[in-house]
Design a protein around this nucleic acid. Structure first.
Lengths: 113, 113
DNA sequence: TAGATACTCAGGTCAATGCCTGAGCATCTA
DNA sequence: TAGATGCTCAGGCATTGACCTGAGTATCTA
């Protein structure tokens, strides 16, 4: 029913909608870390926490490499770019809008009856 | 279980995670519009569509005023600001990170065994 | 090589989401 | 003032999301 098969940006926004996952991103902004290091501050089983990491990785916000039994996560440099791009497109749209002329017309139309 | 009682930014990201809702934001970037005008392009009942509008309004991304039987929606000017702020904080964090020195140390620790 | 460590897999619960139908209920318009 | 219009309310149903427990499977370490 949706326009297209769930765009990648959906997953990015959905991933960022969760405070746990945002905190992971914030943490990784300081340095890379293993799954259990990342999980430590959270009152949650590692299994549950891993699903958050998976969500972040699926969204392209983080990457991971496994070395021995440890999986280390890092920020994906281009991860937040999609969001920045969408935001800046919105800003542009908004700004192009010759100082709310449209709004003025809409209000006019709405008032006139 | 979560850190705090679901921060406002959660709702903003959740609202933006849905392509229908993002398209509404994009549309409103051009001009304000009524619920049914906004709904027209979507293959969905108005009732369902209204829930999307409610989600956007609850998130603070749009505002609405009702005049007669028509409810007109506009972009909330400060709506996307929270997201921009969060993103720029992340960018700052990332940049402060003296050219991946931390990553270097982590990799070192990871390799050395 | 036994045991601890660091995940990983396979379920299962419960609440929230996204969509629907069927009724309203005010406003406008002819 | 009857009928169309533009929303709004209530409920129901299927899917997804965020947790959990329990049970592996590699890897490291003593």
């Amino acid at each position: 029913m949706q326009t297209a098969a769930s765009e990648p940006i959906d997953g990015v926004f959905r991933a960022l909608a969760d405070p746990t996952r945002r905190r992971v991103i914030e943490r990784l902004g300081r340095s890379a870390a293993s799954a259990s290091e990342l999980a430590a501050p959270f009152d949650m089983t590692l299994q549950s926490f891993s699903e958050h990491l998976k969500a972040l990785e699926d969204a392209g916000l983080v990457t991971s490499r496994k070395k021995g039994r440890v999986r280390t996560y890092s920020l994906a440099p281009k991860g937040l770019q999609v969001v920045e791009d969408w935001l800046s497109a919105q800003r542009t749209l908004w700004e192009q809008r010759l100082d709310q002329l449209d709004d003025y017309l809409v209000k006019l139309k709405e008032t006139r009856s």
